[in-house]
Structure formats: C-alpha cells, structure tokens
Design a protein around this nucleic acid. Structure first.
Length: 565
RNA sequence: CGGGGUGUAGCUCAGCCUGGCAGAGCGCUACGUUCGGGACGUAGAGGCCACAGGUUCAAAUCCUGUCACCCCGACCA
C-alpha cells in the first residue's frame, strides 16, 4: 500500500476527549473516528488490524472444532420474552419496531438466538456435542461508554455457545474453549490472567474472566500472592478479621449524639469497628431489604443479589427510607419489623455488638443475634478488600484494576430449558442440553493490545495483528537508484508473501520517521541514497529500536525475522 | 441516575473576568528554497464561536434553558 494513496491522517496531538493511552494513540494514528459516545468508524488501517484480530480468533476457534455461524443482529423481541430477559436486560436493549409494529431488539448478546438456531438442528444425543460461534456486532445501550474502544455501544463480539448432553460434556467443552482463549490472547499480545467471576442469579457452576491487568481497568480484581487465587471483586471469597471474643452481656441503650458513621461511632464509644453492626438499606426487586453486616466490613451487592436470587439490587431511595421510618445513622434490626432482614455471618456470630437504637442520637451496646434480633436470611455477603485474608491460604489479598477481555461461562440448562433446546438420549428420553457460553470483545482487545504494546513514540504492534509487516520509508524516491531499489524490494516482499506500507509521500524525513514510529509496524525499512551508499537499506526493529544496514538481498529475511520475533 | 469538567477552524488552544472587526500554532492548497527524526519563506482556503431564548445600540463574551463530549461514582446514610 502506498501511503500517498492511503486515506490516513495522523495527528501530532491527541484530541482532548482522549485520556487513555490506547484512545489517544488510536486517534493520533488515525485508526478510528468517533461518531458519538461509544460509536466509532474504522479507517482502512484500523480495519485491517481489527480483521487480523478476528482472524486469530477465528483460526483458534476453528482449531477446536467450533463451527462458525451467523445470526441476525435484528432479533424478534419474542425471543427475549421467551427467555425472560426482555425485562431483566431492560434498559440495555436497543428496541425498535417494524412498519407493522412488530417489536425487535438489536442483539446485545445471543444466548437466545443461538439457542433458537440450535433447537432447530439438535434432536438426538448423536448430534452432540456441538459448539457454535460467530463474530458479529452487538448493540448495548450502555449507561456510560468510555475509554475509546474500551466500552462501546456498538461493538464486535466473538460469542460461542456449546451444547452438551451432560455436565461432564460441558466440562470438556469449557476446557477446550478455555485453552483456545489462552492461545488467542497470547497470539494477539494481550497479557491476561484468568480470574473467578460471578455467575449471577441465572445459575451455572463456574465462570471465569480473562482479565488484562491495568490501572485503567474498570473492574476490581483480588489477587492472592500466596496461592494464586484470583477473583473479580464481586465474586471474591475471603476470611473476615476475627470477631472480638466476649460473653453475652445485657443490652443497654446509650446516647450517641451526632454519631452517624461507623468510624465516628466506634471512636465515640471507644470500641473497635468490628464491635459494631452496620445497617444498610436496599431496594431489592422493589421490596425493602434491611442488611446487617459487621461494622468493619462492606456489603457486596452482587453476593447479596445472588443470595436473594434477585434481579435488581439498588440502594433504598429516600422516600422509602422515610416511609418505613428508618433512622439513618442509628438503624438496626433490633425491634425492626415490616421488612426482610438479611445478615452476613459476621453480624450473627459476633457477640456484644453496638447497633442503632432506631432513634436519632441513640445506639444499643451489647446486642446479640438470636436474643435481640433475628435475621430472615444469613448469607455471605461481605465484600473482599485489599489486605483481607485469602479464604484458601490466609495470605493478604491484593487489589488490582483490570479490563475484562473474555468470559467463559458454564450456563447449564437455563436457556436450553426456556428456549427448548432438547435432545433424545439413547433410551428415548428428552433432556435439555447443557450449555456453555464464551465471549471475547474484539474492539476492547484492540484497545488492550495498544495499552500493552506502546511507548512514548507510538504503537508497537505485535506482529500477528500489525496492519502491515513492514513500513518502508522512501527518501529521495525521485533518484533512480532509490526508485530501482524500491521496485526490487517490493517485488521481493510480494514474492515472500509479506505486506508493506510504503511511505512514498514527498514529506520530510522527520515526518516519515515520526509516522513510522506512531503507526508501529514491527519492521521499518528505509530506502535512501545514504543507506544505499552504506551498502543497502536501513533496517530498524520498532520494538527494540535496533538499527542496522542490511544488504538489499537480505532485507526480506530481516522483515520476516522481525515479524517472527 | 448523581457529581465534576469541557464545547471557538481538521487538531491543540487563546480571546470570555472588564460586551465593540473572529485569533495563534499545527494541519490543508499553490509556488519557491530545503531534504535522515514532526524544515523555511511568500500567498491563500477554511468559522452557525454547540444550540435556543433573553438582556443590550451592540453578545464568542452577560443571563436562562437545552444538547453533546470527557472523567468519577454507580453503594453502606
């Protein structure tokens, strides 16, 4: 490709809307153009990269025996009503209707669609197992798109779905997909770690995310330096600090004027935070829920949601707090009626805790579960934090930020039941298929590739995703010797099956070198009178900046070597 | 949905406080000189100052509203 013909404009400065390194470089290198929040166009160069990422994914999925298919992006809303997710995905769905007022959604994911497709083709256990996948556009009305390509409203996803006869079969399909993911991320140059993730109220016994660790990530990840345990914060297990040991004492009401927060209250009473009970009010699927947890711990809303098998968990709004007569800052479950009480074991097992007296300015001391109050539900709903003890080995957990690149998930029979994906076993009995699903965000991967592979001068493409194998800088191309060298070299590259971006623009050398660094092809070849005088072409490896003069006959081999490394 | 920030040329930004001809650098076009790390000169093109309303003789500037974009939080009172 001749740069003089390429629709590409690089920028010396990044547009002010960009904050992430990848976002800045995507815009500076002219790979994408923003249309609106979370919506981007890809330019010829950017599109080449995206296609190369897709091809890595496609190759690795095909290698596992997964079969590529294509579903419509426009889905009849009935599919979503059948699974029940028209309601639960709620505001995330882009909805529209046709001229006859039939309702449709733009697919945000395709469990329903793929189940529908499978249900039309799977009849017998002889048809199993099968894994189907596609690489296509998803639409999600995200509350907050961000970070350039990190969170989009329209994006490309590779989504795969496995169908097995039983859980053992699913375990095998899952392991196969997992192994493919490891290879995909390695080839694309994104360092990821697998972490345990929440599998949600829809069931399933296992779910893992492939996370790229970066300070700019959206997710909080807990890592154990002792045993290697890694989990998303919404899922992470931990062992809370031990409770204070004490014999139950009589409950007493004490004045605590102005003490609203746990920290203030503990200081005021000369107690430790773990000697108090924290009260948190939630609205769970519209119903009020009172949550009690030991004062030194925090509530993990995802765990709460799972414990209650709920769809929506929100902080209680002020109107409801008022209507129920809850006293913020002095609330507790003691004497509380009229709503469900959920407690973390930490609040149930500890003795003589300080709790609110449900009267402004007063608290009780020495409250004990069972005697002074009783929880309707006791469940682990604590949020793991940095420094908490690993539930497995006891070491102190570390917290890092991370970007979710891919997710593998043992779904079970949730969708096969609702969508009717069934098969007959060898005794003629009908069963729902056991499903798994496996997703990768392609644009987000592109962002992560750049986050993980750049320097102050620009992008450093891993060779498997680079838009071209070589960047050829031509200086004084009007001189016969240079023009001749270019012709010869181009033919040689072509013969070797290597691609090149040839900078034949009449601009100054400085501009061309800066652009070559910014655009980040693995190898740079400079054809110029000066280099020819020295005996060939100047060859430079983008990643190491290692520079040398290479005889023209050997440049193709050098390009190949740079792309192999 | 809440909080914060920003909207002026393709990009980065000044001008706004204190109302009075629409600005700079980069980029773009033409010509010339340069020619190995974002060269220089000359001459140009390019604007609904986000949008709407208001105040005023006069609004990019002051007031009100709306929209868009970016960041933080989606939470323990």
């Amino acid at each position: 490709m001749r740069m003089s013909k390429l629709m590409l404009k690089t920028l010396r400065e990044a547009p002010s809307e960009a904050e992430l390194a990848s976002h800045k470089l995507l815009l500076r290198a002219g790979l994408v153009t923003s249309f609106a929040a979370g919506l981007y166009a890809f330019t010829p160069l950017g599109w080449r990269v995206l296609r190369r990422i897709e091809n890595i994914i496609r190759t690795e999925m095909d290698r596992t025996g997964a079969q590529e298919v294509r579903l419509p992006e426009l889905n009849p809303v009935e599919l979503w009503e059948q699974s029940g997710r028209a309601g639960t995905m709620g505001q995330t769905l882009f909805r529209l209707s046709d001229r006859k007022e039939r309702g449709f959604v733009l697919g945000p994911t395709h469990e329903e669609g793929m189940s529908f497709l499978a249900s039309r083709h799977i009849q017998s256990y002889r048809d199993l197992p099968v894994t189907l996948y596609q690489i296509e556009t998803k639409f999600r009305d995200e509350p907050r798109p961000r970070g350039g390509l990190v969170r989009l409203r329209e994006f490309t996803m590779k989504d795969a779905y496995s169908f097995d006869a039983d859980w053992e079969g699913l375990d095998a399909s899952y392991a196969t997909a997992y192994a493919a993911y490891v290879r995909i991320f390695a080839r694309a140059g994104v360092p990821v770690i697998p972490v345990a993730a929440d599998s949600g109220a829809i069931g399933g016994k296992e779910s893992q995310e492939f996370v790229f660790i970066t300070d700019d990530g959206e997710d909080e990840i807990l890592l154990c330096p002792g045993c290697g345990y890694a989990a998303n914060a919404e899922k992470a297990d931990f062992t809370p600090p031990a409770a204070m040991d004490a014999q139950p004492a009589p409950m007493e009401k004490v004045a605590t004027p102005g003490q609203k927060t746990i920290a203030d209250l503990a200081r005021f009473l000369g107690a430790e935070e773990r000697q108090t009970v924290k009260a948190v009010f939630y609205k769970v699927d519209g119903e009020p829920v009172f949550v009690a947890i030991r004062g030194d711990l925090d509530v993990n809303e995802t765990k709460l949601k799972n414990a209650l098998k709920a769809q929506d968990v929100d902080p209680m709004d002020e109107a409801m707090v008022k209507r129920l007569g809850l006293v913020a800052g002095s609330a507790s479950a003691v004497g509380l009626t009229g709503m469900k009480i959920v407690a973390d074991p930490s609040a149930v097992e500890a003795t003589n805790l300080v709790a609110g007296a449900n009267e402004d300015g007063f608290h009780y001391i020495n409250t004990n579960h069972g005697r002074d109050w009783k929880a309707d539900v006791v469940a682990n709903i604590g949020l793991a934090r940095a420094g908490d003890s690993c539930a497995t080995c006891g070491a102190g957990l570390e917290v890092r930020r991370g970007m979710e690149m891919g997710h593998v998930f043992k779904l079970g029979t949730v969708y096969s039941e609702s969508m009717g994906v069934q098969f007959l076993d060898d005794s003629g009995e009908r069963h729902p298929c056991v499903m798994g699903c496996y997703g990768i965000g392609v644009e987000r991967m592109l962002a992560a590739i750049i986050e993980a592979n750049h320097d102050d001068n620009g992008i450093i493409w891993p060779s498997e995703v680079a838009p071209y194998d070589a960047h050829v800088v031509v200086l004084n191309g009007d001189q016969e010797a240079v023009a001749e060298a270019l012709t010869t070299f181009e033919a040689a590259l072509d013969g070797a099956g290597l691609s090149a971006l040839i900078d034949d623009r009449p601009d100054s050398a400085g501009i061309k070198f800066k652009d070559a660094d910014l655009l980040g092809m693995p190898a740079r070849v400079t054809l110029s009178p000066r280099a020819l005088e020295k005996g060939g072409a100047e060859f430079r490896v983008r990643r190491t900046a290692e520079t040398s003069i290479v005889a023209l006959a050997d440049v193709v081999a050098a390009v190949r070597a740079a792309n192999a490394g």
